[in-house]
């Protein structure tokens, strides 16, 4: 038992030391921008028409990764639904009045913040994933405090429509511009709310999908995790 711990420490320290050393010598911290980064910093605003470069990369340059990412989230939902069987919900102790009343005030505010973040995802820090998490947290709070379950069918439908929309926008790009996820809408003016072609639309779809998926996961865990 002791030996195992010592070996683990030795392994960990070696790992940290070797990787940190070779990183620092070959890729020093705060080094110059790489070829890829230079290109993005110089050309993103021109090519995609939005000022948030991270969003541009996530949704446009590497939009395919993002499609994969939503798929991974869907997989988590599917896995949780598949692995945890449906069970009758146990009676849970009622939440504290502060929580019960607080949720009524906080819930719409959280939702509003989430919607704001997703709509301005291409202009300011934020976007579909962040907003999705925020919105899902609102629903989660709702479920925890009222100890009820939401209509999961509705969430499943939202998620499925949003996901399909994303995939079909991608396919539409093949026919409109010869490449999957091709940005076929007018780009508009930089810094405008309505700019960037398909980017804000895709990001809103992602926001819908992520929020409903996360809500589904949490809700299933609350249900399935209840001890018989």
């Amino acid at each position: 038992m002791r030996l195992k711990h010592i070996l683990a420490w030795v392994f960990v320290i070696l790992f940290v030391g070797v990787v940190a050393y070779s990183l620092q010598t070959e890729v020093p911290f705060g080094h110059d921008l790489t070829k890829l980064a230079k290109y993005y910093v110089d050309n993103t605003a021109k090519e995609t028409g939005i000022p948030n470069f991270v969003t541009a990369i996530v949704v446009s340059y590497r939009g395919f990764d993002t499609l994969g990412e939503v798929t991974v989230l869907l997989l988590a939902t599917l896995g949780v639904i598949g692995i945890l069987p449906w069970e009758k919900h146990e009676k849970v102790k009622k939440a504290h009045p502060v929580l019960l009343w607080g949720i009524r005030i906080v819930f719409p505010i959280i939702l509003l913040v989430g919607v704001y973040i997703v709509i301005h995802g291409h202009l300011t820090p934020g976007g579909g994933f962040q907003a999705g998490a925020v919105i899902a947290s609102a629903f989660m709070l709702y479920m925890v405090s009222l100890s009820t379950h939401l209509d999961l069918e509705a969430f499943a439908f939202t998620e499925s429509i949003a996901g399909t929309g994303f995939a079909l926008i991608g396919v539409a790009g093949i026919f409109a511009g010869g490449a999957f996820l091709y940005n076929f809408l007018p780009k508009g003016n930089l810094f405008d709310l309505f700019s960037g072609g398909i980017i804000p639309i895709v990001y809103i779809l992602i926001g819908l999908k992520v929020s409903s998926e996360l809500t589904e996961v949490v809700s299933h865990m609350m249900k399935g995790g209840a001890e018989q």
């Binding site: 890829l36 446009s60 340059y61 939009g63 395919f64 999957f180 996820l181 091709y182 940005n183």
Partner: peptide, 8 residues
């Protein structure tokens, strides 16, 4: 994908 030049 997305119609961008390869490494980008």
């Amino acid at each position: 994908i997305g119609g961008f030049k390869p490494p980008f």
